[in-house]
């Protein structure tokens, strides 16, 4: 009998982007491009609402209010600032993985493939879901971590703002979904508030 993989829920509009209909435990998702942070927050939001805890490790300058508007349950979010050395980074991530279902990481420079493998092995053993944010040096993160799903975002249109009038009300984002667990790379259009 084929058994469905254990997943964490994702918001309805993202379901089409995940072949299994949710975040598969033990796997890695990379959010990149110019809406990487917003995308990552959106991806984890439903799971935090459903009772999972989220550890945000080393991601700088996350807008907490934006997280709240993306429906992330802030009462289950913990921000962790890892020590600067590389070995400690791995053990910090491992400790976070022990306690929280969801991990959101910004990968610092200098993390090697061996480090990445240790983190991913831990994630697979503990059945967490790992969301990477690769806004700045996406290709490096991609080659080191070999994510299962890559969501590359590009904003195509900003709504509500004109030359000297209005304010930012939302945006259209093109999401290119690929990765080794995605059978066929596809483009999706999303309307984002925020």
């Amino acid at each position: 009998m084929y058994e469905p993989l254990p997943t964490l829920p994702v918001p309805p509009e993202l379901r089409v982007m995940f072949p299994e209909g949710g975040l598969v435990r033990g796997r890695t998702v990379l959010c990149s491009g110019d809406a990487a942070v917003a995308m990552a927050l959106r991806v984890v939001s439903s799971a935090t609402q459903a009772g999972s805890w989220l550890g945000i490790v080393g991601v700088h300058n996350v807008g907490v209010q934006a997280a709240s508007e993306h429906d992330v349950a802030l009462q289950r979010v913990v921000f962790v600032q890892p020590a600067s050395s590389r070995t400690e980074w791995v053990s910090t991530v491992a400790a976070v993985a022990d306690g929280f279902d969801l991990l959101m990481l910004e990968v610092p420079h200098g993390v090697t493939m061996a480090d990445a493998r240790r983190v991913q092995t831990r994630i697979q053993a503990r059945r967490n879901a790992l969301v990477l944010i690769g806004a700045t040096h996406q290709s490096a993160v991609q080659s080191v971590f070999q994510p299962d799903v890559i969501m590359n975002t590009a904003t195509t249109k900003w709504h509500g703002i004109e030359r000297g009038a209005g304010h930012v009300q939302g945006r259209d984002v093109q999401v290119a979904v690929s990765g080794r667990r995605v059978p066929k790379a596809r483009q999706h259009s999303l309307h984002f508030v925020g």
Partner: peptide, 17 residues
């Protein structure tokens, strides 16, 4: 996990909103 991380990294590195 929060207890453990706080012991590892110091209280200022593990924060909640």
């Amino acid at each position: 996990a929060i207890e453990r991380l706080t012991a590892m990294l110091g209280a200022e590195s593990v924060r909640v909103p």
